[in-house]
Design a protein around this nucleic acid. Structure first.
Lengths: 226, 226
DNA sequence: ACCTGAACACCGTTCAAGT
DNA sequence: ACCTGAACACCGTTCAAGT
């Protein structure tokens, strides 16, 4: 191969564009799990001045907004609805979790970017379709979709922050506490912090259980006056 | 009063200590809602060289760890158990949420600091006491306490990041989407993003409902062999 | 024992200058 | 039209020097 790090300087014309910048940024972010990718590192990786990105994006925030949109679009594309609302919500949640696990920073960003997220709207649409088909009323469906977004983004990005190498340090520390003062902690310490994914799904299923109960409650009501 | 910004230079001896640094840091963090407090700003506020803090804390992370411990200790102190496990878990969750709302950064920090958080252990102890008194088995109680921590810290710190001034921009944008492509979104858009606190409690209650169902399930079983 | 001040290695961003 | 390069205003942190 003539260039695995091709754009470094080899080809001559480096042809920067919004798309090529997004590609490279995501590649770098995926590779250096967790730590922020600086515009200087991005520029160097593309064989270009660190400030060249500013000719295509107004700011780093705008770049990250575009990154978010692309990654969420990937979620929408990968999602294959089954018609079973529980399975569908579960699939959407796990797919979205994958995005935030590899890009923890995006959660905070999406939280306060009030525009240009078409793929986010598609994601909400898919969630709402499942929630309403479950039999939830408009108020509950609206609350539920917002909750799902916050739960997935909040918990997953938090999980991603600690990332590697916690290998039970917490568990051991809690287990070593004096049992007289911490009877409950020491009693169950060996069951604590045994994997974020499992715990995420535990919470997800509790929420889905709760939604199912609410939906069943409504549909089993005799009638409902306005 | 001789000095509202007393430590600036007035008194002469500025007497730095771990306690006085923590006091001032929390004060500054509370005041400048959301934006990070730099060590330079902290030093200036105390009338002291920006690097003087390093004589009392090994790093900024160690400082923030101490801040976390103090704030969580405040939660444990403020908590008054009622004996009703649901009320108690709710109270603990809302008190802890308050900490992360005013100090969003702490969630990420607590996530990967594997030591010296006695107040965190007390918090877990209080949660576990409530969960076990609800009738949950050890495995469920352990999963539940971890979930509660992640839910409260993850969602609340995410809520805090967006902070002020989102005043329905999202809602208006979603409502303005083409109804043909986004039928569900446009149908419920006016019910979306109407306050983080309400949605936080909606999710919290769903989780508590789910836990209650699990506890009831177990205690209504005929018996359980080992 | 504690604080200072210069210095180092980073950030995101702006702007005049190049081509 | 796009990229460069110096510069600005920030970071956390280190370390020799002061008192």
């Amino acid at each position: 191969m003539a260039g695995s790090t091709s754009a470094r300087r080899a080809g001559g014309r480096t042809r920067l564009s919004r798309e090529s910048i997004l590609d490279r940024y995501i590649e770098l972010a995926d590779r250096s799990g967790g730590t922020e990718v600086s515009l200087r590192a991005l520029g160097e990786s593309m064989g270009v001045d660190p400030t060249a990105v500013y000719r295509h994006f107004r700011s780093k925030d705008e770049l990250l907004t575009a990154v978010t949109d692309r990654l969420l679009a990937g979620v929408v594309d990968a999602f294959e609805p089954t018609g079973d609302w529980r399975l569908d919500l579960r699939a959407l949640a796990l797919l979205t979790r994958g995005v935030y696990l590899s890009h923890p920073r995006l959660a905070r960003l999406l939280a306060h970017s009030p525009s240009s997220h078409p793929s986010n709207a598609s994601l909400i649409e898919a969630c709402l379709a499942a929630l309403r088909s479950a039999g939830l009323g408009d108020a509950d469906a609206a609350a539920a979709v917002e909750l799902m977004e916050n739960y997935v983004a909040g918990v997953s990005s938090l999980n991603a922050e600690m990332g590697d190498a916690e290998d039970g340090a917490w568990r051991r520390e809690l287990a070593a506490l004096p049992p007289v003062r911490y009877p409950h902690v020491t009693a169950v310490a060996d069951r604590l912090y045994r994997g974020d994914d499992r715990n995420f799904e535990f919470g997800l299923d509790l929420i889905l259980d709760g939604l199912e109960a609410r939906a069943g409650l409504i549909s089993s009501l005799p009638a409902r006056g306005p």
